[in-house]
């Protein structure tokens, strides 16, 4: 772990975007997540790390209620987005997901044109009044995802024809197009080669200017490279949460230390 470069970053934001208190998740009888408390800051990259099956992805999917699509999943506790409980019965998960966008592990562009992939979100949420506005959103989103230059000449081509890294950036553009406040990323680089990974990581750093980004990653190096805050999960518990630099250089919990130094994982 000596080659790890930990960028000293200022975390001057103190505004809480998401507040989670006492979150429990059950899949059927399996207690997958136990009593998680966490505060996720605005305009910050927060990384969730931990060994496979530790509950980090589960927790991520709680934040935009993607767990609702799994029939056996049950969530208890409170998760507040800007002070509003997202598990309140009055909340429409559909509306929530427009605010809390998500990028998945495997790039999953729809089998439609690049343009239609990006325009999909704005169309269903009624964000535009005419074609010109839609065109504008599509271009802006593709620029933000740093893929505009590569695809601007073939917006009508199918999204599935792009390379893996391009597909993932297209999915990020698609998520950005709905104008979300939080972006959740579930191991976004695990299916990509090193060059594509570097491009996506760079992009994540840029996205921090506007969004609160939460990223689940298997790679500690990646967490160290892109995040300001890191949470370490182990066996369904949130073991430790703090500044990325501090977690990696001076962990408080022995379990974190074991993981960082490669003894468990």
């Amino acid at each position: 772990m000596n080659d790890m470069r930990i960028v000293e970053r200022d975390v001057d934001i103190t505004e809480n975007k998401i507040t989670a208190r006492g979150v429990q998740v059950y899949y059927g009888t399996n207690h997958a997540l136990k009593d998680v408390d966490v505060d996720i800051l605005d305009k910050t990259v927060t990384a969730f790390i931990g060994p496979s099956g530790c509950g980090k992805s589960t927790f991520l999917r709680c934040l935009n209620r993607m767990n609702d699509t799994v029939a056996s999943a049950r969530v208890e506790g409170k998760i507040l987005l800007e002070g509003e409980d997202i598990y309140d019965p009055k909340v429409d998960p559909v509306q929530l997901r427009a605010k809390v966008g998500m990028v998945f592990q495997k790039p999953n562009p729809f089998p439609k044109s690049i343009y239609d992939n990006v325009a999909y979100g704005p169309k269903i949420h009624g964000l535009t009044r005419n074609k010109a506005e839609l065109d504008e959103i599509v271009e802006k989103s593709l620029r933000r995802a740093a893929i505009w230059n590569e695809v601007k000449d073939r917006l009508d081509a199918s999204g599935t024809g792009l390379s893996g890294g391009q597909q993932q950036r297209l999915c990020i553009a698609r998520a950005v197009a709905t104008n979300p406040e939080v972006l959740l990323m579930d191991e976004p680089c695990s299916a990509l080669d090193p060059i594509a990974t570097a491009q996506v990581e760079e992009l994540i750093d840029e996205l921090r200017a506007e969004y609160s980004v939460v990223i689940v990653t298997h790679s500690m190096q990646q967490a160290a490279r892109v995040s300001q805050k890191t949470a370490f999960f182990h066996l369904g518990h949130l073991v430790e949460y703090g500044e990325t630099g501090q977690i990696f250089t001076n962990p408080q919990d022995p379990r974190t230390e074991s993981y960082i130094t490669g003894r468990i994982g």
């Binding site: 509003e84 009055k90 509306q95 929530l96 427009a98 605010k99 964000l127 802006k140 620029r143 840029e206």
Partner: peptide, 19 residues
Amino acid sequence: ISPTSADAPKPKAHGSLLE
């Protein structure tokens, strides 16, 4: 369209979740 810069002010697109 003229390229928009990445840090352009973002309109508040969404209202409260509860309504």
